[in-house]
Structure formats: structure tokens, C-alpha cells
């Protein structure tokens, strides 16, 4: 079985498990909702100000949710040590990284679009037809975030203090993704197509860098010995 097919089989497993257990999405949505409301409250009731803050709000909520999702997906493999079984059976273990990137990207894209809808309702965002560009942007930025997250989760998977370590190790690495995601979506909302394209290109470069690093180092990072 080739690398892509194995990765897709593993991603499908993640999605199937999550559809049945609904733990990752439940905790991510709860966390994102809390973050959205809290930052909204902190931003004050001035509607213009909240609208200006919307991209940052959505992204902060998304980052925290991504930690919850990534951690949960990793625990699917660690519970009952399914990880060792996969490790031994896969001729190319990079499939575990790629599969996790795919499933994480799907979760984060769906989550981001959900957050945009929530933000549109809560913050009264004037979503014009241009805002449809948020859909491919959500997919791209989710992929970028997933390429870094899947690798860092593998690094901290059996370290001590994992719940604390994961955000500390991951969030600083995601700063450029956060910045590009916020700026690109701001540009989309303000109909500045040129800026949006520039930041989308930045996201693409990051995705390429992180996925390259991920494919090169995953086996070293995740090796149980």
C-alpha cells in the first residue's frame, strides 16, 4: 500500500472515530465558543470595534481549539497503544504524519468556517459575496496549521506534562500562521484581494516548509524507542 493510500486510510480512521465519539469536536467547539465570547466581552460592546477584531477573535479561538483537537486525535492512537500496532505494520511511517495532517486539516477547516458563521451572527459581520473567499482560505490555513501541529503533537506525545507542554511548544511556532491567517481574512473581509493573495502565499510557503520538515523528521520524532 503506497504512502498516500495509507495516509488516507488513517485519516479516514480518525474521522470515523471522531464521528462516533465526538470528543474532539465537542471540546474544540466548547473551547472556541468560550474563547469567542470571552474575547468579545473583553473587546467591549462597540460593534465597529468588535467587527475589526473579528479575524483575531476567530483565530485565537481556532488556535486553542486546534490544541484540543490535535491532543484528542493523538490520544485515539495512544489509548490501547494502537500506535505501536500502526508503527510496526506500516512500511512507510510517514503515512501516520500525513494521515494526521489530513484529518486535522479537515477538522480545523470545518471548525474555522463554523467560527466564521458564529462570528457573523454574534458580531454582525457584513458578509458580502466576497466573503466566500473565506472558504478556500479556511482550507489553506487549516492545512498550514495542521502541518505544524501534527509534527509537534508527535514530539510531545509521551512527554511529561503534555497538556501544558503542547501549547507552549506549538503556539509560538504557529505565530506566522496566525499572523497570515488573521491578515488574509481581514483582507478578504475588507475586499482587499491583493493583500489577501499575498498572505495566502505566505500560508502556502509555511505549509510547504512544515510539511517538508514533517515528512523528513516524523519518523525520528515519533519513534517509540
Amino acid at each position: 500500500m503506497n504512502l498516500a493510500a495509507a495516509a488516507i486510510a488513517l485519516a479516514r480512521k480518525d474521522l470515523l472515530v471522531e464521528l462516533r465519539a465526538r470528543q474532539a469536536i465537542a471540546s474544540a467547539v466548547a473551547l472556541a465558543a468560550v474563547a469567542l465570547v470571552l474575547v468579545g466581552l473583553a473587546g467591549g460592546p462597540d460593534p465597529d470595534r468588535l467587527r475589526a477584531l473579528a479575524p483575531a477573535l476567530v483565530w485565537i479561538a481556532l488556535l486553542y481549539a486546534s490544541i484540543a483537537v490535535a491532543d484528542r486525535l493523538e490520544r485515539i492512537d495512544r489509548a490501547d497503544d494502537a500506535f505501536s500496532g500502526l508503527w510496526l505494520v506500516l512500511p512507510d511511517r510517514r503515512a501516520m504524519y500525513l494521515g494526521r495532517v489530513i484529518s486535522l486539516a479537515i477538522f480545523l477547516a470545518v471548525l474555522q468556517l463554523t467560527l466564521w458563521m458564529a462570528a457573523a451572527l454574534l458580531l454582525d459581520l457584513p458578509l458580502a459575496i466576497d466573503a466566500l473567499a473565506l472558504v478556500p482560505l479556511a482550507a489553506l490555513s487549516a492545512l498550514t496549521a495542521a502541518t505544524a501541529t501534527a509534527l509537534v503533537v508527535a514530539l510531545v506525545a509521551d512527554a511529561g506534562h503534555r497538556p501544558l507542554l503542547l501549547p507552549v511548544a506549538l503556539l509560538p511556532l504557529l505565530v506566522p500562521t496566525f499572523l497570515a491567517g488573521v491578515q488574509a481574512s481581514s483582507a478578504v473581509l475588507d475586499s482587499r484581494a491583493g493583500d489577501a493573495a499575498t498572505w495566502a502565499a505566505a500560508l502556502l510557503i509555511e505549509a510547504a516548509l512544515f510539511s517538508g520538515l514533517g515528512l523528513l523528521t516524523y519518523e525520528t520524532a515519533a519513534s517509540p524507542d
Binding site: K13, L16, V17, R20, A21, I76, A79, D80, D81, A82, S84, G85, L86, L88, V89
Partner: peptide, 19 residues
Amino acid sequence: RIGLLGHANHLFDELTAIE
């Protein structure tokens, strides 16, 4: 090709036996 059935069963709880 090495296969292990360790202390754990290496199963995904939410998948069926056949899956």
C-alpha cells in the same frame, strides 16, 4: 515483518472488531 500483541490490544475503541 514484525507484529506485536503487547500488554495492550492495539485496537481503536470506536471502531468495530471487523473494522
